[in-house]
Simulated scan of single mutants.
Amino acid sequence: MPVILTLTMNPALDVTVEADRVQPTDKIRCRAERYDAGGGGVNVARFAHAMGADVLAVLTVGGPTGKHVVELIDAASVPNVPVAVQGITRQSLTVNEGATGQQYRFVLPGPVLTAGEQRRCLDLLADAAAPADFVVASGSLPPGVAPDFYQRVADICRGRNARLVVDTSGGGLTQLTSGVFLLKPSVRELRECVGRPLDCETEQVAAARGLIDAGRAEVVVVSLGAEGVLVVTARESSRLSAMPVTAVSGVGAGDALVAGVVVGLARGWPLPTAVRYGIAAATAKLGTPGTSAFSRAEVDCLFDGFDVTVGR
């Protein structure tokens, strides 16, 4: 049975290309295109699988792009359960500009999901969550899905004794009220969730602890980009530094962080150690093109060879 189950309500076919320069009006001639299965939970499943974890990816799929996404997941030997929907699975486009080294990301909203399609996802989750140690609900909610959908997921996981990890934004984040084991917002998402600027670490810790005190999550892990990761529980907080790396692509780094943390926790590691493993996974991901996966050996090497600075 899977140790880690991921739920992706809005997967994507990630298309990555290179172009000399991105500018208006002119045709942008692209090259070196690559295609990856994407969307938060799909990425977490692929990355956790690469690190040796037992996973099961549950995702909605529709149309030719949905079929392509499943083919790519199958090619990576990641166990998956597609939930067929009437709409067409979205594409996401990343353009790497050669002249400046900048990366441009174009993200589509995704298909509208009917009430019946949403119920099928929840029913399947209810059946599959019982044997899972962790459920990871990750990514945006597509059109037609109520903002409290992830709270309904939390209620199911609580009834199945599965620990829920959520990485989302917007209404999917603000409508969570209880039942989340670990919440992983970026600092921008945390700022939007609490409606305050959060200009310093003290304010960020206070905002994260406010979510914990309100019973919305037990642990909050805030990704700070180049400044590292903030880990907050009811009693403690710490900031772990990022690892130095020359980034090839930042797409999927947050998903790799989540995957590494959950894999570490599934191995029975204490939270600080699991977060260190997540940072190693995110660093490995930054060194790969598109949203391609890395190897477990790369993550283990980074994990063993870098002394993460801890601030309190």
Rank of each mutant, 00 (worst) to 15 (best):
T246L: 06
V153W: 14
L198V: 03
V221Y: 05
G159A: 11
A214P: 08
G215S: 10
E203H: 00
G139N: 09
G144I: 15
L173E: 00
E203Q: 15
P142L: 06
G170T: 08
R235L: 12
A217P: 07
L164Q: 11
V194F: 12
G225C: 00
V136L: 01
V180W: 00
Q175A: 06
G179V: 01
C193W: 15
S178N: 04
G172E: 02
V231Y: 01
V165W: 07
D199T: 13
A146W: 01
E227T: 12
G170Y: 07
E227V: 06
V145D: 03
S140F: 05
L164G: 07
V194S: 14
S138M: 01
G144N: 09
T202Y: 04
A217V: 12
V135W: 05
T177E: 10
R216T: 12
A137N: 10
Q151P: 13
R209K: 07
E203R: 06
M243N: 07
T233R: 06
G210M: 12
E189Y: 02
V166A: 00
L182P: 00
R235K: 08
A146V: 10
P131H: 14
Q204S: 14
Q151Y: 10
V135Y: 11
D199P: 03
D133I: 04
F149Y: 15
D148E: 13
V205R: 12
A129I: 11
P147I: 11
S178A: 14
R152Y: 10
E227G: 00
G171K: 12
V232L: 00
A242T: 15
N161T: 13
G172R: 14
L173R: 05
A234I: 04
G195V: 12
A132W: 10
T246Y: 05
F134Q: 09
T168L: 02
D167M: 06
P244M: 12
L190Q: 11
S138W: 00
S178H: 14
N161P: 03
A154N: 01
G250C: 13
G171A: 02
T168D: 13
G195H: 08
S140E: 06
L211I: 13
V180N: 02
G171Q: 05
V231K: 06
L182I: 11
L164I: 04
Y150R: 03
F181G: 06
G171W: 05
S249Y: 08
E218G: 13
V229F: 09
F134L: 07
V248Q: 11
Y150D: 01
E203C: 00
A130K: 13
A226G: 15
V251M: 02
G171I: 08
A132I: 12
C193P: 01
V220Q: 03
V231H: 02
A226H: 15
V248L: 04
K184P: 03
F149I: 10
E218A: 14
